[in-house]
Design a protein around this nucleic acid. Structure first.
Lengths: 368, 368
DNA sequence: TTGTAGGCGTTATCAG
DNA sequence: CTGATAACGCCTACAA
């Protein structure tokens, strides 16, 4: 009758069984140093007998290498992060590393704790989609401890580490320009943001001109691209064209999307800056009985499965989180292996995919 | 000029700085044993000064507890597993544990390796969505090493560990019965399966009667429920009513779904046994120009976001992978804490959600 | 080629 | 209450 956790056999056990010294067994099992052919076989046989398998924790402690990395994202249930995680895991697996996952829910305090825990667990690298773009002491700390960090989705200029991003501002600029070219002038914007870091939008030189304050998070950059496109076209913007929703609050978000569509200034198109917003605005248009694109054009972000399943198919700015995850992983392992070139900011391309949810303004003028 | 990885301060460093013995510093920092109030404060101050943070690897080695668990699923990019992972992580986080993620891609060999690696990393528990339902030596091994395992999505009766599943057979039975009650008789089935373990379908007592051979994977159970429902209604089944696709092979899967819809025996409804198949059959119907539900009724599995966004909204059997993940986590931690009751099989309820993609057979008889 | 001894950073045990 | 010391399992000098 076994009691307690049955102890796993150790090199010492194998050594005893094989009648050799611990070091010899270690050499045979670890595949380092010189071992006689017969000795090796005897040891290996003994190991098989006992069901020996190395204790990686002890090995890590000795060698200082845990062969694990950490990923800190806001929510693995979000397809963006799920795909990114997949990319990271794949690269890690190729390198013989495991990946520890933590969810920050876009909350700085949780992210800080997560990073601390991962560092204490001696991960050899960290991929982080940072919740805050202003507070990054915890990430600097990682760097200070010699643990490479790669930023995903957002860059923190003040931090000395690689990042993998897309050119959010130009992607949004191109998207909104497309709408403008179709003849739209009154274009709404819907963005999901986290509760703590609301961007500030304030008047800027001229009637119907605004600027976004706040650090360069993707949503802010996309809003900036949107504003720049409108300004370039000389299209004035109503302040309440820009609606920000908090992803958590379902009811509020629903109401906000509905309100945007029914604004008194009658938008003829809406640009959604992320997959969450895209879903929301589509749903709002659908339940509100809006004909897309006849009454309202929709242009979203992220090319999720559903965008080609719905009617009409949704035009989107596509990015590839899978690829971003992979690139992040590759940068990370380059650093782990000692690459110490200056920080690199990798900007992956986005693609504007025009489908059926965006139409010319003319179409919308059909009488009711 | 620092060179190499800057060494993190250790208890010894803190002890020296505070002018106490290592053991004392350890007690103050680890919060165990007796320490004088002033001594504690001195140590804590020293620790703060030096930026000390415990080396969890060393702690794990000493204490035998790594405070980490592992999850082995087939693909984190699949929303089912992403949600489940989220549930598991949440519970783990509550318990102060981290979660290591590995993807098996539904391949037994990868799963075996992953389990081995995780065991070597001394995880204290494992949640596994097993790729194979016949080979489970690697999981038995985990059990033998005293590492609790909880099975997700599929149960392995021969294995002594808890499982969290849904009642696949009855869920499918109810779903197909619903279709039968609507007047459908020629009901097709689409299932995604992995390449290696194709279920065998062979004739069983009577014309138009079949049985599925193979262990009780969800897909097989669902097929069984489908057959049972049809038999109960006395509806005969054509062999090629049952189409299995391999999730990887996009082109093949597309063709198979199309073929099913265009079968010479003219199905009036299709039951899809998983989210992948549901997506496929919907797409096939859409591109094939089938009117749903007028020409073909669709009933799917998994209540993903898109099922209410498309037109018509899809009727589905809903399960909650998030909840399943949580339950799995809770069972796992119960075991980690020493619960040694006999194995428990937790069957979570499914819900048949009828939406617009399922109609009565009558509707379909409209002339072309 | 093989064996011996020490140490990685913690925690546990035992005296003082 | 505090201090010295051993041990977790492995790896690496160094000696034989």
């Amino acid at each position: 009758v076994d009691q307690g956790r049955p102890r796993r056999p150790t090199v010492a056990d194998v050594a005893r069984q094989a009648g050799v010294a611990v070091a010899t067994a270690g050499r045979a099992l670890g595949g380092y140093g010189y071992v006689g052919e017969q000795t090796r076989e005897r040891v290996l046989a003994a190991a098989r007998d006992l069901g020996y398998s190395p204790n990686v924790v002890a090995r890590s402690m000795r060698s200082g290498s845990t062969r694990s990395i950490g990923f800190v994202g806001s929510d693995i249930a979000n397809p963006y992060f799920a795909e990114a995680m997949r990319g990271i895991c794949d690269v890690a697996h190729l390198e013989g590393y495991e990946t520890i996952l933590t969810n920050s829910d876009e909350r700085l305090d949780l992210e800080q704790r997560a990073v601390r825990t991962l560092l204490d667990k001696q991960v050899e690298g960290l991929v982080v989609a940072p919740a805050s773009v202003t507070h990054c002491d915890h990430l600097a700390e990682a760097r200070a401890e010699g643990v490479p960090v790669v930023l995903l989705d957002r860059d923190l200029p003040q931090l000395d580490c690689d990042s993998v991003v897309v050119d959010n501002e130009n992607a949004a600029y191109a998207a909104v320009t497309h709408l403008l070219k179709l003849g739209h002038e009154r274009i709404g914007l819907l963005a999901s943001i986290n509760a703590t870091e609301q961007p500030e939008i304030r008047p800027a030189g001229g009637e119907g001109r605004w600027e976004v304050l706040g650090a360069d998070r993707p949503s802010v950059e996309r809003i900036r691209g949107y504003l720049r496109a409108l300004a370039a076209y000389g299209a004035p913007v109503s302040r309440d064209a820009i609606t920000c929703i908090v992803a958590d609050r379902t009811a509020e978000a629903e109401a906000a999307a509905r309100r945007l569509l029914n604004s008194p200034w009658r938008p003829t198109a809406v640009f959604a800056t992320d997959n969450e917003s895209t879903r929301r605005i589509f749903l709002a248009a659908k339940t509100g009985g809006f004909k897309v694109p006849d009454q309202i054009s929709l242009l979203g972000f992220d090319d999720l499965d559903w965008t080609v399943m719905v009617e009409p198919q949704i035009s989107v700015v596509a990015q590839s989180p899978l690829l971003m995850g992979r690139m992040a992983g590759e940068r990370l392992f380059a650093r782990i292996k000692g690459d110490d070139q200056p920080k690199r900011r990798i900007v992956l391309p986005t693609q504007l995919i025009i489908r059926a949810s965006t139409g010319t303004r003319a179409e919308q003028e059909v009488p009711e």
